[in-house]
Computed example of a mutant assay.
Amino acid sequence: MPHLISLNTAAAAPLQTEQGPVPSGIRKRARDGAITVGPLGLAGDEQADLSVHGGPAKAVYAYPSEHYAFWQTVRAQARAAGWDEALPPGSLGENLTIAGLLEKQAWVGDRLRFPDCELIVSEPRFPCFKFNAVMGFKQAAKLMVQSGWCGFYLSVLRPGSLAAGQDFELLPGPREVGIAELFRARMAGKG
């Protein structure tokens, strides 16, 4: 059964990028205990650029933990981190670090039913220059495009609360548009 490994939030703060410091909420850190989930996301989480992050359709961002070993390896190869430096949950900017549900298994309209909350898959995450900055090397966004390991945004169907360690049920939606296919279509030629 799919599983919620970690709940991650961040306040918006300056992030040093090649374009200078910019406000960002990408540096998420794991939080203990239950967290309230409202129509615009997790309590205590902020997005700095609401033109591309946040809002009802992108209230919560989920990322599969299965891809973490890849990112740890490429960061070490790029000398952005040591080989033994583990990436903590939330390092890819996600609110939910999950296991058991990959992009190729998620479709727009699928529902994730937790014990006290229900979320609906809305769209893939599309990387920007801030992802390069937080990962520590220039090719990070390009590698996300090439791998297709983008994670996905969720809207809040039923507000409530979430806690790390919870299992969730995947309830299929109409299954017309897959997250992996939508990501590839929108990112064609950008990898």
Rank of each mutant, 00 (worst) to 15 (best):
A76H: 11
V108Q: 12
R158H: 11
F126Q: 05
A86N: 09
I98N: 03
G173M: 14
Y63S: 04
L170H: 04
K138T: 06
F70I: 02
G33A: 02
V22C: 10
E46Y: 09
I5F: 00
R186D: 11
S147I: 05
L92M: 15
A48W: 04
Y153T: 00
A43L: 04
K142H: 06
G191L: 10
L157A: 14
P127G: 09
D32T: 05
R27P: 00
V156N: 06
D32E: 13
W71Y: 03
L102F: 02
E103I: 01
E176D: 09
Y63I: 08
L182S: 13
R175V: 14
L112N: 07
A99S: 14
P14R: 07
R158L: 10
Q72E: 15
Y63P: 01
W149T: 00
C117F: 13
A59K: 13
A188E: 12
G173F: 15
S147R: 12
V74G: 08
G20A: 08
A185V: 00
P21R: 04
W107C: 11
L112R: 07
P2S: 06
L92S: 07
L143R: 10
A180N: 04
G44A: 07
A62K: 02
R158N: 07
Q47I: 07
L42I: 12
V156W: 06
V108G: 03
A185P: 02
S51R: 15
A78M: 04
L7D: 01
G160I: 10
G33R: 01
G109D: 11
R113Y: 10
L157T: 08
G54E: 08
G191Q: 06
G82A: 09
Q105I: 00
V60H: 02
S155R: 15
L40M: 06
R111G: 08
E118H: 12
A10E: 00
R184F: 12
Q47L: 01
P56R: 14
L15C: 04
V52L: 01
N8L: 09
M187R: 02
A57D: 12
E118A: 09
S6E: 06
P2H: 04
Q139K: 14
L112C: 10
G173P: 02
V37L: 01
E123L: 14
S161P: 01
I35F: 02
M144I: 12
L154I: 03
C117N: 04
V52G: 04
L119R: 05
F114N: 02
A69I: 06
P39W: 13
